[in-house]
Structures are given as structure tokens and as C-alpha cells.
Simulated assay, not measured.
Amino acid sequence: MADLKSRRLEIDALRVLRAVKQHGGVTRAAEALGLTQSAVSHKIKRLEDSLDCALLTRRPKGPMFTALGLDLLDYAEKILAMHDEALLSLAQKDLSGRIMLGLTEDTTLTDLSRILGRFRRLHPQVAVRTRVRMSLILREQLEAGELDLAIMQMFDHEVRPTDEVLFQEDLHWVASPEFEMPAQGPLPFLSYDPNCFYRKWAMDFGQDAGDVLETVFECSSAAGISAAVKAGLGIALLNGRYVSPDIAMIDSRLPQPPRLSYVVRRARKTHNPALEGLINEIRAEIGRKGGLSLAG
């Protein structure tokens, strides 16, 4: 019994260490885990004592983790994934059925890909059919009963009380660092296709400051928009993860876009045990990590 308790404490400590990395510090990790800062620090210190090495540097302006701490993080991800999957495999009943799932391109680049892979291994009798579409199309397909569940983007003010928010991020006006905003005339706009709600907002509200947007490039893929921005073809609306040395946020004359939420939304009047099982998997991940993180 003592050995089992010790191993449980070690698993908890690894989960805390991972949270420190994910949330950028002890204080934020404590908030995400619902613990006090001293409790988080104590768990990490106990892990350091058991391993007889320092995992955090504890220098105000230095790197957060020591080299050994970074090495342990790599192992921690694998250990925690195997631990959680083993518990789920033993605890859950066999599920069967069919799930029609909708995802956006962006949501495929999150922890969700790993969660879906684990769900398929745990429940091989569940057939999951996935469509990757733009958010507005997924909403329409949910309303039409063509999907059981969609994981998609929307602006914060569009989130329903029944939606489950996975994570949030900001939307930015971006351009190549070499791009020069024209002093007069329309601004060249690099846009997703007409089914994109970014584009609809830009055309309905983004021109309120008096500037006119002229769509000069249209593409349904984030990779295509990113390439056009890097080439200096104009300005675009992109998530913060695409900001890089080749793609910079601009101090635009245009209004600040609303914040984005990534949500789980189910079809109305859907009663499907397999679907409930998948939603519970996502909920469990949110509980463990305080939200879902981007893989890319």
C-alpha cells in the first residue's frame, strides 16, 4: 500500500511539473490545477529530492528548467499518457456505435488528435468518421443533423451556455515585416473563402475605421494564407500561433478583432453512449491540464 501511495505521489508530481511547463510558471500552474503555489512548489521539491537533482533553475531571468528537468519532461509526457490510458481502459465499459465528428483545420493541431487516437485504441468498436471543414460549415451541418459533435472556432460572444470551451486565443492583423501599408486606397486583404467567419467580421466590422479592404488573395487553408503573407501580398487575420519572424502583428488602423474560443458543440437531441464517452475523454483532459493546448 505504501508503495502504491508513493507511486501515486510521483504521478501527481509529474503532472505538476508538466503543468509548470505548459502554463509558463509555478503560479499559473497552481491556478490551472486548483492548488496553492506552495503546494506546487512542495510537490516539485519532493520530486527533486527523490531524484537527487534540480529540475527548476529558480533564477528570475534564466531558463525555467534545468537540462535534467527538460529530459524528465519528455519522459513525463509518455508516462502520464500511458498511466491515464491504462486507467481509462480498466475503468470504462466497452462502447460501440458510430460518431460523426466535425473538426476545423486549427483544431486538428491540438491535443485532440492524441485524444482521438487514444479513444480509438480504447474503444475499437466505435466507428469515428471525421470531417475537416470551416467553422460556419460545421455549424450548419450540426443544425442539419449531419454531425453528432463539432469542435470548432467562434468568437467569444457566440459561445452558448451548453458549449464546452477548450481554449481561447487572440486573432491578429498580420503582414510580412517588409510589407508597407498603403497611405491611400484600399488595403490588400488576404482572406479565407466566403465561409470563413474571420472574413465576414472583417467585411462587416473591420472596415469601421474608414479603411476599405480589397480581397486580393483567397484560400481555404491557413498554410496558403501564411505563405501569401510571407510573400508580402497584403494583410490578413491569423491566430497568434502563426506569428513568426516572417509574419508580424501590425499596428493596424483597423479595429481590434474579437477574441476566439475553441469549443465542443453537440447536435441537439443527440443520445449516443459512444459520443458521451468521447466527450468524457475530452472533459478529463481539460480537468487534467486546465484546458487543451496547441500541438503545433
Score class of each variant (00 low, 15 high):
A222E: 02
V212F: 02
Q207Y: 07
G210C: 04
Y242G: 04
I235N: 00
Y242V: 04
E214H: 04
A227G: 13
F217G: 09
K200P: 03
V216N: 02
G240L: 00
A222L: 09
G240D: 09
V229Q: 02
S220K: 00
E218V: 13
L237M: 15
M203D: 01
M203E: 09
E218C: 14
A236D: 04
G240E: 13
F205G: 07
D211G: 10
G224D: 01
A236L: 05
L213N: 05
S226E: 14
V212P: 04
E214A: 10
L213M: 08
A236K: 00
S221G: 06
S221F: 11
V216T: 15
E218Q: 15
D211M: 05
I225D: 09
A222G: 14
M203P: 01
A209R: 01
A209H: 13
Q207C: 14
D204R: 15
R241G: 06
K230D: 07
N239F: 09
K200D: 08
L237H: 02
Y242F: 15
G206S: 13
L213A: 08
L233W: 03
F205M: 10
L233P: 00
G240I: 02
A227L: 07
A202M: 15
Y242C: 03
A209G: 11
S221L: 14
A202W: 05
A222C: 13
D204T: 13
T215Y: 05
L237F: 08
G210K: 07
W201E: 08
A227M: 06
V229A: 05
M203S: 03
G224E: 00
D208A: 14
L238I: 10
A222F: 09
E218A: 09
G232Q: 03
Y242L: 14
L237Y: 05
W201A: 10
D211C: 09
Q207H: 09
A223E: 11
L237G: 01
I225N: 12
G210H: 13
L238Y: 00
L238F: 06
S220C: 09
S221V: 06
G210T: 10
A202E: 04
G210R: 04
N239T: 13
R241T: 00
K230L: 08
L238P: 05
A222T: 11
G240S: 14
G232A: 08
A228I: 02
D204N: 12
A202F: 10
D204K: 14
G234F: 01
G210V: 03
Y242H: 15
V229M: 05
A202Q: 10
L213Q: 03
A223R: 10
L237E: 01
M203C: 07
M203K: 08
G232S: 07
V229L: 04
A228F: 05
A231T: 10
Y242W: 15
A231H: 02
V212C: 08
G240P: 01
F205Q: 15
E218F: 07
A231K: 12
Q207S: 09
A227V: 01
K230S: 14
E218H: 08
D204A: 13
T215A: 02
K200I: 12
A223Y: 05
G234R: 00
V212H: 06
G240Y: 01
D208L: 11
S226T: 07
K200S: 07
D204M: 12
A227N: 11
G210W: 13
T215F: 02
K230G: 08
A227F: 00
G210F: 12
C219D: 15
